[in-house]
Amino acid sequence: MSANGAEPRKHTISVLVENKFGVLSRVAGLFSARGYNIESLSVGETLDPSVSRMTIVVSGDEFVIEQVTKQLHKLIDVIKVNDLTDDSHVERELVLIRVNAEPQHRAEILRTADIFRARVVDVTPVSFVLETTGDEGKIEALIELLRPIGIQEVVRTGKIAISRGPKSRVKRAPEARRPRVSDDPRVVGFAD
């Protein structure tokens, strides 16, 4: 094995899949069957409702990553596999943190949240829930700063990523194939 590429590192792989029954378990099953570890996985619809995008973070050397992408491609429901790691791309993750908020710490938490552009989305006499988005480094840093104060629970969405260039763009979906949620008369209010 060559010296370069033998070092395991994290890869962000963007996968377009048919939005069909069982596709998530096919992808998850592939990783477990071949002994690869998923660090995070997130799934969402694309502009075309029949296509979903999975963003998978997996760690491995070049050899493992090559197999991962080939094996993903081999799945019948997989349309496209794109390893974003070495391309120019933007990564984001959303995190919700419930942190102890005793009176002596409340100001400090709010200051820290402000610096990180995190928002307080729930308040009780003894806790705050903070919400923020960012890349992995920012989220890790925020967690580390809050840890001494006492984190009760952290919930992360897993990473999503988008390339900066024109690569891997899905065909534009036909207009109005599906009503938007905000058009639904039963939906009363929207937070954002």
Binding site: F21, G22, S25, R26, I76, D77
Partner: peptide
């Protein structure tokens, strides 16, 4: 059935 045969087949279908 489809859960069991998923890794033992090239592809599988459940007709709904």
């Amino acid at each position: 059935n489809v859960g069991i045969t998923r890794s033992a087949t090239k592809h599988n279908f459940l007709v709904k």
